[in-house]
Structures are given as C-alpha cells and as structure tokens.
C-alpha cells in the first residue's frame, strides 16, 4: 500500500463537542416529531377535549363551589397543562424502545457521540414539545375565559412548572422502557397510571370535595403538587389543600412545598433513569 492511500483515508474530524452532540440528537428527534404529526396532534387532542368538555359540562356546577368566585376555566387550565406534560413525557420511553428495537440505539452507541448528550438532546426535544403544547393550552384557556392572575411572568412560570413536572415522569417512562424493552408494555404502563392518577389528584376538583380515601391518595400523588404549583400561579393564591403550610406566606405556601416535592422526585427518578441508561449503553452488559 502506498502512503498516498493511507493519507487519503486519514479522517479529518472536527472533534465532537458536547453541545454539538446534544444539537445533533435534538434535531433528530425534532424531525421525528414533525414527521409524525399524528402523534403530536393526538397528544394535544385529549387535553383539549378535557378542557372543553369539563368546562362546558361541569363549569356551572363547580364554579359555584370554588372559593373567591374563581371560574372553572381558570381552575382547570393549570391541570390540563400538567396533563400535557404527563402525556408527552410518557412517550419518551416509547421513542427509546423504538430505537432499541430498530437497532438505531446501538448505532448511536458505536459513534463517538457523548452518551449523556444523546439523551439530553432527546429530552430537550421532548421538553420543547411540552412548552409549545402548554402555550397552546394557555392561549386556548384564555380564549375560553380563563384568567392568568399573575400575568405573563406567571404564565412563563407555569411553563416552567410543566417542565419540572414532566422530568420525573419522563425518567419514569424511560425506566419502564428499559425494564420491559417492549413498546406495547411501555405504552400500557404509561397510560395505565396516567388517567387514574389525574383523577385522584387535585387536577379536576377540589380535594376537599372528595371522599377521605381519595384525599389520602391525592396527598401522596405527585400530580397534586404539579397541579397545585401551576394553579397557585394561575390564580395567584395559596391553593394547596393536602398540606397545611403557612410559613412562607401567600402563594409561596403552595409553591415551596410543591417545588420541593417535584425536585426531589426529579432527582430520584432521574438518578434511577441515568443509572439504567448507563447500564444499557455500557459495554459490559448486553
């Protein structure tokens, strides 16, 4: 072999940077979402149906029972925002299983891309979807008569809460995906917990109006904390019923405990997910 051919074959690499790898995967999953408009649209359909139906059907009954003359629209919109986060996050694991089944997961693992960046890019793409869909719901809610009492900063904070809330469920979805390694099981597992958990939380009705055992479940249901935090911002009020905290004053009596619960959940499930993903992509384990 002549040295010419050797030189010709020498690879000139722009060294992959961490951010570049995140971007590569972020764009890949964005294209994925755009090419599957049905999936994107259908993940919006259920929350919109809930928003419209619930406000139309229960609006008159519930509005009277809500304190301080709050409209049911304003009461419900934060819950629907959290529902959006839940639905999009639950699809995260499905994308991962799809990748494992199709061999694309392995294909990305033999590239020099940073493994953390591969997952960060994917997660970022899912979070962007949540942001866009929550914005759509907020706008739709306002059109239907909801009112964001804390204004634009509050609306942005609600988006932040949706992201914070999404992370633990996103991690959960990936953990289920890596345990089952099967699309159907992942979809079933995610759907199985989604709807019942929404109903036994503060999402649709005041917890105080529910039977005692549901109140107990709602107290330990993470959805309650996501919804309460978003609702506190929406209504500019201390809306938390499951914990009686008065130390921080006003809406912070809801926000501080809610954020604490969500952050702890994010860290715990995030750590489990990172551990499992590491194991799945490390060379020592099949």
């Amino acid at each position: 072999m002549s040295t010419d051919t050797v030189d010709d074959r020498d690879v000139v690499r722009t060294s992959n940077t961490f951010l570049r790898d995140i971007w590569t995967n972020f764009m890949r999953w964005n294209i994925n979402a755009i090419r599957n408009p049905f999936v994107v649209v259908s993940s919006l359909v259920q929350p919109i149906i809930f928003l419209v139906l619930f406000t139309q059907i229960f609006g008159n009954v519930v509005t009277g029972t809500l304190p301080g003359g709050i409209s049911y629209e304003s009461y419900l919109v934060p819950a629907i925002a959290v529902q959006i986060a839940l639905i999009v996050a639950s699809s995260s694991g499905i994308g991962l299983v799809d990748d494992i089944e199709s061999g694309v997961f392995q294909k990305t693992l033999v590239t020099p891309m940073n493994r953390v960046a591969i997952f960060l890019g994917k997660t970022l793409s899912e979070l962007i979807r949540i942001v866009i869909q929550v914005v759509i719901i907020l706008v739709l809610g306002v059109i239907l008569g909801a009112d964001v009492a804390t204004g634009l900063p509050g609306a942005l904070a609600i988006i932040g809460i949706a992201i914070l809330f999404a992370l633990w469920f996103l991690a959960f979805s990936n953990v289920i995906a890596l345990i089952t390694r099967d699309q159907e099981s992942t979809i079933i597992a995610a759907n199985m917990v989604q709807l019942p958990l929404l109903f036994v939380s503060s999402a649709f009705l005041p917890v105080s109006s529910m039977p005692g055992w549901v109140q107990t479940v709602a107290t330990y249901n993470p959805i309650t904390y996501g919804v309460d935090a978003a609702r506190a911002l929406m209504l500019d009020a201390d809306v938390m019923e499951v914990l009686d905290i008065t130390a921080f004053g006003g809406i912070w009596n809801t926000l501080v405990p809610s954020l604490a619960v969500l952050i702890v959940l994010d860290v715990i499930l995030g750590a489990i997910a990172v551990y499992m993903i590491n194991r799945a992509s490390s060379a020592s384990v099949q």
Binding site: R13, N16, T24, R35, V104, Q106, K107, T108, T111
Partner: peptide, 26 residues
C-alpha cells in the same frame, strides 16, 4: 449491524447527515 438500522422518519440524505454529525465530519 446485522439488523438493518436506519432512521425511518428521515430521508436518505438526512440519515447520512445525521451520521456525518454523529461522526464529526467537517
């Protein structure tokens, strides 16, 4: 790999671009 693995949602050109990005081709 033994099992064919391409990104189905992407076009042929996009698949190759993804691979270029993944391997840091200038």
């Amino acid at each position: 790999a033994q099992e064919t693995s391409v990104i189905n949602e992407m076009t042929a050109r996009e698949n190759l671009r993804f691979a270029c990005d993944a391997y840091g081709v200038p």
